[in-house]
C-alpha cells in the first residue's frame, strides 16, 4: 500500500513538471486580457502546483524518506525515532 502511494505521488510530480509549459499551445499567439494565453496557463498551473504541494506536505510528508518506507532489504530492522546507536560522532 505504501509503495502504491509512493508511486502515485511520483506520477503526480512528473505530471506537474510535464505541463508547467503548455506544450499543447506551441506556436499559439492567442492573447487574453493583454497577456498570451500560454502565460495564463502557466500562472494557473503554478497555483495548482502550490495546492498539490500543500496537500503533499499535509498528507504524505516523509514518504520515501522516513524509516519504514524506504528500507526494504531488511539488513537492519528499521525503527523510527531510535538513534542507530554508536554511529553518532
Amino acid at each position: 500500500m505504501a509503495r502504491l502511494v509512493l508511486w502515485g505521488w511520483i506520477v503526480v510530480a512528473i505530471g506537474l513538471c510535464a505541463l508547467t509549459v503548455p506544450w499543447f499551445l506551441w506556436g499559439d499567439a492567442t492573447v487574453v486580457a493583454g497577456i498570451p494565453l500560454w502565460l495564463w496557463w502557466h500562472v494557473g498551473w503554478m497555483g495548482l502546483a502550490a495546492l498539490v504541494f500543500r496537500l503533499f506536505a499535509r498528507r504524505a510528508w516523509g514518504l520515501g524518506i522516513e524509516s519504514g518506507e524506504g528500507s526494504s532489504d531488511g539488513s537492519t530492522p528499521p525503527n523510527a525515532g531510535v538513534d542507530p546507536g554508536g554511529e553518532r560522532r
Binding site: 506537474l16 508547467t20 502546483a49 524518506i65
Partner: peptide, 23 residues
C-alpha cells in the same frame, strides 16, 4: 523565459526541496 524559470525554480527545485532537502 518565465516558463523556463517557473519550471526550474517553481517545480523542479521545489520537488528537490523535498527529495534532497528534507532528507
Amino acid at each position: 523565459w518565465v516558463l523556463v524559470m517557473g519550471l526550474m525554480d517553481g517545480i523542479v527545485f521545489a520537488i528537490l526541496w523535498y527529495v534532497v532537502g528534507y532528507k
